[in-house]
């Protein structure tokens, strides 16, 4: 009786190839979904005027960040795996409710709030919204330091959308959280916003066109929902 070839190696190889083929055929793993968190999050807007500098702050940034599956933000790595030409395939939507941004002035903060809301046409455009279009890692990355990216995206304020680019740092906070920090300088007139010039009785106060936006944004990784 002719014996069957009992060598297990080719069988394992075949099985492995089959599994690999099956794996490559199935849909890609879902991205890592990070959801905005209300703690350790803030946005500050700093500006100038003919009288004094001013600042407004908001405690809430809503939205999400989707990152490629399996991405590990271990800052001890020299670089991040899975980059193509240094670009991380990420998807980001961030939004800020205009009314949540409040003046830090000692006197009459509600006046500043109102001026800002009026200037930003809050009634018709209650939110500032940002969508990422490209996230490119800055090299070289120093081990132990946060990963710094050049972020490009579309920023919509007061009904006007402009392309913006600014650096952001992404810091892992434990296993499930990330903190994104960034600073950007904008011009109000680029968004068809007239710099407020309130008349405070003793003379005209004129705000400068340029403002600086600083933010820190904490997000929590949420596991995909089971179907």
């Amino acid at each position: 009786m002719k014996k069957l070839n009992s060598n297990p190696v080719p069988l394992c190889l075949a099985a492995g190839l089959l599994l690999a083929a099956a794996a490559s055929a199935r849909p890609a793993d879902p991205p890592l979904h990070y959801q905005a968190q209300p703690t350790n999050t803030s946005v500050a807007i700093q500006g100038t005027s003919s009288v004094h500098d001013w600042e407004m702050k908001g405690p809430i940034i809503g939205g999400f960040v989707d990152l490629p599956a399996g991405l590990d933000f271990d800052t001890n790595q020299a670089t991040l795996p899975g980059l193509k030409d240094g670009i991380l395939a990420a998807s980001v939507m961030a939004r800020i409710t205009v009314r949540s941004i409040k003046s830090e002035a000692d006197h009459l903060p509600e006046v500043m709030d109102h001026l800002m809301q009026e200037a930003m046409k809050e009634t018709n455009h209650p939110r500032i919204e940002y969508h990422l279009t490209e996230l490119k890692l800055r090299q070289p990355h120093l081990a132990g330091q946060p990963f710094v990216f050049d972020a490009k995206g579309d920023l919509a304020i007061a009904g006007v959308t402009n392309k913006v680019a600014f650096p952001v740092a992404i810091v892992p906070l434990g296993k499930d959280k990330i903190l994104i920090r960034g600073t950007n300088t904008l011009k109000m007139t680029d968004y068809k916003i007239d710099p407020p010039a309130p008349n405070f009785g003793l003379g005209l106060m004129k705000c400068g066109d340029e403002i600086k936006v600083l933010f820190q944004w904490t997000l929590l990784h949420l596991p995909p929902k089971q179907p």
């Binding site: 905005a36 209300p38 809430i60 809503g62 939205g63 939004r95 409710t97 949540s100």
Partner: peptide, 11 residues
């Protein structure tokens, strides 16, 4: 009321 809505919309 505004603060509740702003927060609840996102969280």
């Amino acid at each position: 009321g505004g603060a509740v809505k702003t927060y609840a919309d996102d969280f």
